[in-house]
Amino acid sequence: MRIVHVADSFPPDVGGIERQVEALALAEQADGHDVSIITAVNKDGAAPTSLDVHRGLRTRWLTIAFPSLNHAMVAEVFDREDVDVVHAHFTVASPIAIYAVRAASRRGIPVAVTVHSVWWKVASVHRFVSGVFFGPSRMRVVYSGVSTMIARHIRRVYPRCGEVSVVPNLVDTQWWSPAAPSLHRAGDPDFRVVLVGRLKKRKHIDEFIEIMSRVQAEVPAGTPVSVSIVGAGPRHDDRAKQIDELGLRDWVHLLGHRTPEEIRDLLHESDLFVAPSRQEAFGIAALEARSAGVPVVGYNFTGLADFVESGVEGLLVDDADDMVESLAKLLVDAERVEQLKASTRARPPRVTFDDAMQATYAFYDRARRELGGRAKR
């Protein structure tokens, strides 16, 4: 197949969506497909790649405000030879993706849209951009979400959109899995808690630090706990100040950026992984931790519910109060934590790399079946 991915975010920008689009395109290329990328990101210093990447205007805000200024670039990709499917990746703001979807629809190219972010936010921006900048939206597409939760949101917002597929993010679960038994036991000499995420507002790491302050007040004084927060970002200084103000310096440590190999080694000797975001559409870092054999503590109304069975592979809680109570109980119960670690390691993840690839190709087949082949020019 000739596949064109359209994403407003792409490397060298850093983030989960950027990683996912690149990883999916490379996997499809490895499967023998002809793959191109259209993106709004045009930065100097982008690493060389085997992918056919077409970047928007050098001045990024012009692409955001006036995506139609990229008309010639989009037309060149779509018209140089037949395209079997356009895979558009929607986030909260996706002006070039929306523009390219409409351009593909006019040409009769099947379009498969995957929503990567909490849908009600995406829907609001989608409607505004489509209506204000492009007139009434006339997009012929099929929809998918990266999790059951996102698919449910799409159906609720657009009840006439038809079937909504679930196309999980790609995580090489085998690469993250432990090769040997852990040498560390919970509470011996400490309970090791890990969080991996960019230090940005939407990750709710400030709320997690506040939760840990409340947990500290609930457990006996001197309870040995070591919390490692892995990740860099614009809120680093704010979080460091918060940790000091709450008296958590002995408990909580900001490790900054770490390589995937370093993160994997850290996870293999950890007891719990916490996913504190209440807007987690999927939870890439959480699935990586779960694949590494670490029980995950997160919210039951997020994408984590697709691959974490509460009580077996971690705990899924209702709200912040529930998370405080659950962590406070676990961090004084080494036997319970070890039980969760054993059951997590004993079960293969419910979402694997192969599952995600099969779901993606099935989604493309559905788009081509429901939307038909390319119209004649």
Rank of each mutant, 00 (worst) to 15 (best):
R368E: 10
D265R: 15
F353W: 14
R377P: 15
L254W: 15
A334V: 00
F208G: 03
D31L: 15
A123R: 10
R58G: 08
M1K: 09
A75P: 06
T114L: 05
V225W: 01
L26P: 04
R107V: 04
K341T: 02
A97V: 14
V166T: 13
A186L: 00
P295A: 08
A97E: 12
F66R: 15
A359N: 11
S226W: 09
T360I: 11
N169D: 09
R249G: 15
G303H: 06
T259A: 10
R374A: 09
D79W: 05
K241W: 12
R290D: 00
A112M: 08
I284Y: 01
T352H: 04
M149A: 14
E370Y: 03
G231W: 00
R127G: 06
F10S: 02
V317W: 12
W251D: 01
L246E: 03
G56T: 06
Q358A: 14
V129I: 15
L266R: 12
H153M: 14
D8I: 10
V274F: 13
C161F: 05
R102N: 13
S117L: 04
V6H: 04
T360L: 14
S36W: 02
E313F: 03
R198I: 01
C161Q: 05
E325W: 11
R156Y: 13
T39Q: 14
A46I: 01
W251I: 02
V53K: 07
